[in-house]
Design a protein around this nucleic acid. Structure first.
Lengths: 235, 235
DNA sequence: GCGCTAAGTTAAGCTCACTTAACTTTTTTG
DNA sequence: CAAAAAAGTTAAGTGAGCTTAACTTAGCGC
């Protein structure tokens, strides 16, 4: 038998679907520079109660996947992070695969991937990766972690709601909210679109915007927050 | 509120993964003319105990998916059968898809499909069906139920263990046992292979066999039982 | 038909994932 | 800074899905 003291929790053996969803949500919260996620935010994300979140966090802590001080935000342990990145990799490769092989559009693919990511084997994911030629971005512009866990990350992306007026390329569209995805897709905005950000009217909750489809529309802040931009320095 | 008396159990709302696996196993037992499945067989299939099977059957009965008299084999209700056929359709289309798009071989595809069938949406399945041109057989030669539940069934197929000596086409290779699949694939036998069945030596548990790959080998009965044959009447 | 054995059921108890209710801690705000 | 509001925790209870143990029923050999 392998000895084990109380300071080294058991390695994660079987990780449940709920656990995988939590790990991914905790990891995702900080991917774009956000603060570690709170219990409240987790409860909202999964449509459950704070009590249930406390309970689940307790189990994840016992499995050595997260670290948590009472009344503080949740963080991943190294083991938890490894597993979270593996899930993100699965999710983004599956999204890419569905768009490429089954004709899904980039704004509808998220929910399907959310289910498949828990069922697809590592073997299948590696085959998808190879078939697609080892892509480094998914259909929303999110970076795809490599098999070894390294995640290519664009450092200069900025949220549209924080952007100064000027010309940008849309590098990423957050897939957190399907309704926002549909709105943006309906406007013809995609990862890769070029846009010109205008000056916000005082007190307005929309941002004036012009984009290459020819359209011009003020975008509400909640949708604008899903768009991440880079200045395209053409040389 | 909709009134409901005790003789009409509630329609199946959320069907769990375990429930889906049971329904499929119960349906599959009779697909090729077998007797309705017993609790013992279900326990063996899923590597669990008879007590757990009784418990699960009780829940499925309460959901109106199976009908069961104590100490008798289990049968599907119409609702249970509809759901079982839908699962079989998913399984076989996913197998076909994995072979076609991801280069899986027909003998390794079963386990992956076993997981994915619980995660894939109806939408995804319909897209796979269309992409593949509405196939009516999966890679093992099993018929694929249509979206409306109708299942094309070859009436003349016979198990190799029951076949008289003569010439046949392999129409189906049961995917119940991965080890048997690997053995048969290793011999070069596939759905579509032509074989000649010889006369069994008295008392032997193997059947002499000659097939188009040029090989000649006596096949043990447990492997032979996985092969289903049709007489190929070339006109 | 009796008794043995295999199959099936019932009972008690466990974990996971959820609920509601009561309570505590932290943060905000007047 | 104190009170109110928000966030988090604990407690108690539920159902699914599993376990082991004890018991009942069905089918078979003689």
């Amino acid at each position: 038998m392998t000895p084990r003291n109380s300071s080294t929790p058991p390695p994660a053996e079987g990780i449940s679907r709920v656990a995988e969803d939590f790990l991914k949500a905790i990891w995702s919260a900080t991917e774009w520079g956000g603060a570690p996620i709170t219990g409240k935010a987790l409860a909202e994300r999964f449509g459950t109660t704070a009590a249930n979140v406390s309970d689940t966090i307790r189990r994840l802590t016992a499995q050595g996947l997260v670290s948590h001080e009472p009344y503080k935000p949740v963080r991943l342990t190294p083991a938890g992070e490894r597993h979270a990145v593996a899930m993100v990799r699965k999710h983004r490769l599956i999204e890419s695969f569905l768009v490429r092989t089954l004709g899904y559009s980039w704004e509808e693919v998220h929910d399907e991937a959310e289910n498949l990511e828990h069922a697809a084997s590592e073997t299948m994911i590696d085959r998808i990766d190879a078939l697609l030629g080892h892509p480094d971005r998914d259909p929303h512009g999110d970076p795809i972690p490599a098999a070894d866990g390294t995640t290519p990350h664009p450092k200069h992306a900025v949220k549209l709601t924080d952007a100064s007026p000027g010309s940008y390329e849309v590098t990423r569209i957050s897939d957190d909210d399907p309704a926002v995805l549909r709105l943006l897709a309906g406007h013809g905005l995609r990862p890769g679109s070029m846009i010109t950000v205008g000056t916000r009217d005082a007190g307005s909750s929309s941002i004036p915007l012009e984009y290459d489809g020819g359209g011009l529309a003020p975008l509400p802040d909640d949708a604008a927050a899903a768009l991440w931009l880079v200045t395209r320095t053409r040389r």
